[in-house]
Design a protein around this nucleic acid. Structure first.
Lengths: 230, 230
DNA sequence: AATGATGAGTGTATTTTTTACACTTTTTGT
DNA sequence: ACAAAAAGTGTAAAAAATACACTCATCATT
């Protein structure tokens, strides 16, 4: 590369680049998000999303997966980029450009022991506490993205255990969409999608009568690749 | 801020941060995008999107508007963030994190004299030439975002002059959605939205009989805030 | 001045999709 | 035995989307 070409880059400023993870889980008929109460500087005592700085040899996606793994123990998690936030004063400690990702996890699988190490806490997205930086906006944008996506893409299953009852699935949709759904209409739509299949097992925990357990069959979905549920 | 807090930032690497603008316009029944053939290093001779580096005292949005104004002369243009691209080798000259924005402009208004200064050229999004970096992916993602948005949000009007015929509007939708639309059904839907209103003027250019000109009334739309057109 | 060509403009019937709605079944705890 | 709790199931009505063909106004040509 010529000297001129090097200058092309060199004349420009550089920035700290971060990722912030909106880690969603579903429990108690709530869409929850994982926050941490910071016990370190800067901003000790503030609630924030889980984040980290981009390092030299990783992409933003990799950084987000790294942050996620560090705080939940989980790898290979469904993630989607929400957007990049760059207001001059968004982090009063320094100029930081941050890209938000949301992740959907099965709350049964994450490592809850880690939680204590970094003062993590799950909060309902319906009543968010006061959160530092622009992280509230990030969460709201992520929630809206998820709300739009869940009707046309089978991403919601990432929030459930591998097998689930139709009542669980329906409650998940009701919570994320923010509206009640007619049980019979919902089940009609589910039964039209052959890749949501009965496991044959019966869940006896949530009801006296027992409810059939279902699973999402990704292979079958990939053949059909049509999804509509709402 | 304490010493500890400063280290929190200082231990992390910094990066060049850029914006790339996907500038869309509508002409000749084509959705076009503005590229430049670079006559400077690095990557002289390559076709790329219009871009620029983020500077210290501006947000990404402001940087994108600056790039847009520099190349088209236009200010206050509709823009939307597409996403942030961070693959390690995306720019072989240096590690650069780039956020893509798409902009919708009325091709009658931009400053075509500027085009020659930087070897700009409009190309159809239907047959993109070979484009450097990951810019092809950016354009495709932007196009897809626009395709999804245009049915539920009145953004398409940004690509048209202030007054337009219904045939023009329909062709715009057909091109962006990539499918033919029934004329009577389309007009039925338009007539249901009172904020798309007749100006009273007649366009005599595009047909012998003359076609009524319409305009999008933003104030009326803001009261209703419901849009559906496909 | 007649006529042919061009795009503008207009309404209804059919199909598909979405929504509304209520009772029976199974099991457990009392 | 019976009360309580959630599972499971089908049809009719309403709403939305689609398919479809001719007349109108004007200009250019002859």
């Amino acid at each position: 590369m010529t000297q001129k070409a090097k200058e092309y880059y060199r004349d420009n400023p550089q920035f700290y680049v971060a990722v912030d993870c909106i880690i969603f889980a579903f429990e108690n008929d709530e869409l929850q998000v994982l926050l941490q109460q910071r016990n370190f500087e800067p901003f000790r005592g503030e609630k924030t999303l889980l984040g980290g700085f981009l390092q030299d040899e990783e992409s933003l996606e990799e950084a987000a997966q790294r942050v996620l793994q560090f705080h939940t123990g989980l790898t290979n998690i469904y993630m989607e980029q929400v957007g990049t936030f760059s207001a001059l004063d968004r982090d009063p400690g320094a100029r930081v450009i941050s890209t938000a990702y949301y992740a959907l996890i099965d709350k049964n699988l994450y490592d809850s022991a880690l939680l204590k190490e970094y003062d993590g806490e799950w909060v309902s997205t319906d009543h968010l506490p006061s959160i530092h930086f622009d992280h509230t906006k990030m969460i709201e944008q992520a929630r809206e993205l998820l709300r739009r996506k869940i009707s046309f893409s089978p991403v919601g299953f990432n929030l459930l255990p591998p097998s689930f009852t139709l009542a669980q699935l329906q409650r998940l949709y009701e919570v994320i969409l923010g509206q009640e759904i007619d049980k019979r209409n919902f089940r009609k739509r589910v039964s039209e999608m052959q890749f949501i299949e009965k496991t044959g097992e019966i869940d006896k925990v949530s009801s006296r009568r027992g409810a059939s357990l279902f699973q999402f069959n990704m292979e079958k979905y990939n053949l059909i690749h049509e999804f509509k549920l709402k």
